[in-house]
Amino acid sequence: MAAGGDHGSPDSYRSPLASRYASPEMCFVFSDRYKFRTWRQLWLWLAEAEQTLGLPITDEQIQEMKSNLENIDFKMAAEEEKRLRHDVMAHVHTFGHCCPKAAGIIHLGATSCYVGDNTDLIILRNALDLLLPKLARVISRLADFAKERASLPTLGFTHFQPAQLTTVGKRCCLWIQDLCMDLQNLKRVRDDLRFRGVKGTTGTQASFLQLFEGDDHKVEQLDKMVTEKAGFKRAFIITGQTYTRKVDIEVLSVLASLGASVHKICTDIRLLANLKEMEEPFEKQQIGSSAMPYKRNPMRSERCCSLARHLMTLVMDPLQTASVQWFERTLDDSANRRICLAEAFLTADTILNTLQNISEGLVVYPKVIERRIRQELPFMATENIIMAMVKAGGSRQDCHEKIRVLSQQAASVVKQEGGDNDLIERIQVDAYFSPIHSQLDHLLDPSSFTGRASQQVQRFLEEEVYPLLKPYESVMKVKAELCL
């Protein structure tokens, strides 16, 4: 049975990233139509530049190519590739079939990587351009969430054990800070992308030097003109047959890092959902379990974690691919890159769409948070109580021993009897502590235990987050809708 299948058929496997999760716009960027249309555009740009620099290419040939950029006979191309065992030459023939007058000058002087690699770089750039505003929107939604809850005390956790208090907004800023680093890295790697350009079979530009009869300047002009037509500021000066596969490492490393950030955020949300302090959106008709109707599973956060793990592992592909590119190139890269580049971007696209949807509907339960604080705060307040007693004339050592005994009794009630923490009640009825009984409410005010959390939130948002989001103001209103 021949390899390949009808990918629109229910009898043929289709990647869930495309069929179930990723956005239509990201799927289109990695589609065959987008790819092969870009090949034709690159052939047109090459012909236009070659004509401008004096090669015998007519206006009629150029116009014929322009008129057929979208006229792609995919069936013919597939048949040609089956016959020739070469995808680029299959599309040269297919393009030439609908451009008979231009057929002889299509791909003039070029090698397969002229269309293959340059198209990949265009796709990487455009895919990054799709991700950047999506990530900015996630940051914006979380920034709104953090600002609104900047002063809401909550129990902090280290080692997932109760620690000092923080605020809900401050905790959210930990998430935002990681995503801001990801946004900066995505922008950097996007701006650092260079075009492969017009380089020939081993990167020496020998074929173009021959076409222009040894004119170095025209060869350099050709490279520059096509690079500018493709919208790049610069091209690699040095290439082998391909652009260095280190570029793929750079791009997928940034995406993998984004995956790590999203995994951490969504894990926190899942843990908070278990504590009943916070939940992701839950639709009115949504079913959490087929057997347990009360369940409210954090399905979206779980999906993000599941896909983020996949995204983090994909960076190993370009690392290994770059390491086995012998001399000017081997074909070890080809099949692998067809999979890992598309999957990385479709996965990143999915987790950003999902995280935006989550961040637009996060639900906080202040009463649950308050109750958990009441359970733990008495123990945390013991040092403040000791200091207040010393100020009232008591002995630190005597007070410490009193607190120690009462704390152990209260802990026994919590752990052995399943009761509430009654340390404060014990202190309130103990005559030894009568000098500070009137101060206990103040000493137990949760806001006095959150330090500068709310001020940190305000400063972080104003100095770091809002300036970073400013270039994306025009796209901030787009909502994230999930079908599944």
Rank of each mutant, 00 (worst) to 15 (best):
A291G: 03
R196P: 00
Q325P: 02
F30T: 07
V226W: 04
L17M: 15
R270N: 02
E50Y: 02
A206P: 02
A127M: 00
W45V: 06
H97K: 13
G169L: 00
K82F: 11
K246S: 04
E64P: 00
A150Y: 14
V198M: 15
E48A: 05
K415H: 06
N384T: 09
V189H: 06
G54L: 08
R303L: 03
P24D: 13
P100E: 10
W39D: 00
S290E: 04
M389V: 07
L209D: 15
C98G: 10
T450V: 10
A392K: 14
S31T: 12
K233M: 10
T204W: 00
M476A: 15
K134H: 13
A235N: 12
G156Q: 02
H400C: 04
N185H: 12
L124A: 11
F160W: 06
G156N: 00
E463Q: 11
P467R: 09
L443D: 00
H7I: 12
F236D: 02
V315N: 09
I72F: 13
A348E: 06
S448Y: 13
A348C: 12
E481H: 14
K170N: 01
F379I: 03
E481P: 14
M181L: 11
R337P: 04
W39V: 09
L469C: 13
A127S: 11
D430R: 03
A110I: 04
N353W: 07
A102E: 03
Q241V: 02
Y466S: 12
R196L: 13
D445M: 13
L209N: 07
T330W: 02
A381W: 03
R33G: 08
M181P: 06
D59H: 11
E417S: 08
S9Q: 11
V324L: 10
S306W: 02
R85L: 11
F460D: 02
K229G: 05
K402G: 05
N357H: 08
E283R: 09
S412N: 15
S290N: 06
I403V: 11
R234P: 09
Q428A: 08
I176S: 03
D6P: 06
C340S: 14
E302I: 03
R372S: 05
K82W: 11
L222A: 05
Y13I: 11
S290I: 02
A136K: 14
S9W: 15
S67C: 12
D182T: 04
P467D: 07
D332L: 00
T167Y: 01
L211K: 01
I265E: 03
P318D: 00
P16Q: 15
L84C: 05
K284Y: 13
A256P: 03
S253A: 13
F433L: 07
R125T: 07
A110V: 04
K66Q: 11
M316A: 08
I351T: 13
E425F: 11
